[in-house]
Design a binder for these strands. Structure first.
Length: 272
DNA sequence: AGCGGAACCTGTCGGC
DNA sequence: TGCCGACAGGTTCCGC
């Protein structure tokens, strides 16, 4: 589910509902996400805290509390945050319930248990957050910045795009989709991307993310679910998962390759 | 610097 | 039908 556009979507939905509500109690059904923090400590750290707002940084969700502390969440592969009416029984994948004083339930659900939840009093205390690089939708992310950053690395473009310490928020799906839209090969060493190409990559990154956010995120499962429906974003993905199908631009077959143990999809004919 | 491999977990899907 | 391996949107750590 979660790359930048999906997290952005979740954050804006949470932000429309959470601010002003207080946590009256926390139930932990499985504690993998807590990173070794004892459940009792986690519960105690949250008791009575009031949500001020929710923000996104890279793929992290940052819940700001009114008293200045924060809960930092990461969904990894299968994590989800859900706002729900009160329930009596947890679903099999529910990991944490946050009871709110407005009667609602904030649920952290995660089939694979890779997701993480941490509570910090200062953002600087959260090392993974501090390691994140440029926000691709921020004003600092310019074609000039992209060109300069490309020059400093020999890493293949796809890997280059996914390094969170360089650009924060791009994952396996969007990296492939961005490179397709930029007509650049995922295998190209970053420093060989020159001339007008960095601007193309910059533009494709912004447009792809903005379009995905506009569609409230794109996911594989959602993509399947809407297969027989019209509208929406079923046409969003151009290359991801489409090996063997004709390239939407030049009709050559899309190829599936492997880079750092992850699948890359691209058109070898028009991505150079 | 960069890469391959493994680890953290569970669910699903394709092939035989 | 059933089992088994491959693979899945992420990140980190370790060794070369």
């Amino acid at each position: 589910m979660p790359e930048l556009p999906e997290v952005e979507t979740i954050v804006s939905e949470l932000n429309a509902a959470l601010p002003g509500s207080a946590i009256t109690g926390t139930r932990v059904f499985r504690d993998n996400a807590l990173g070794g923090v004892p459940v009792a400590d986690f519960q105690e750290a949250l008791a009575g805290r009031v949500f001020e707002r929710v923000r996104r940084r890279g793929k992290f969700l940052v819940f700001d509390f009114r008293d200045g502390g924060h809960m930092i969440g990461h969904l990894r592969m299968t994590g989800k945050f859900i706002l729900s009416p009160p329930l009596t029984q947890p679903h099999a994948h529910h990991r944490v319930w946050f009871h709110l004083d407005n009667g609602r339930l904030l649920i952290f659900q995660d089939a694979r248990c890779f997701g993480t939840l941490a509570i910090v009093e200062r953002l600087a205390d959260h090392a993974p957050l501090q390691r994140l690089g440029m926000e691709p939708l921020s004003s600092g992310f310019t074609a000039k910045w992209v060109a300069a950053a490309l020059r400093q690395s020999k890493t293949p473009l796809k890997i280059w795009l996914m390094d969170q310490s360089r650009i924060a928020g791009l994952g396996n799906i969007y990296a492939s989709e961005i490179l397709f839209r930029a007509s650049l090969s995922p295998m190209r060493p970053a420093h060989t991307v020159t001339g007008g190409e960095p601007a193309r990559l910059h533009r494709a990154t912004r447009r792809t993310l903005r379009e995905a956010i506009h569609h409230n995120g794109t996911t594989i499962s959602d993509f399947r679910r809407v297969d027989d429906k019209t509208g929406g974003f079923q046409d969003f993905l151009r290359v991801y998962g489409k090996q063997g199908q004709p390239c939407p631009r030049c009709r050559a077959p899309i190829v599936k390759a492997r880079q750092q143990q992850r699948s890359t999809f691209f058109c070898p004919s028009c991505q150079r």
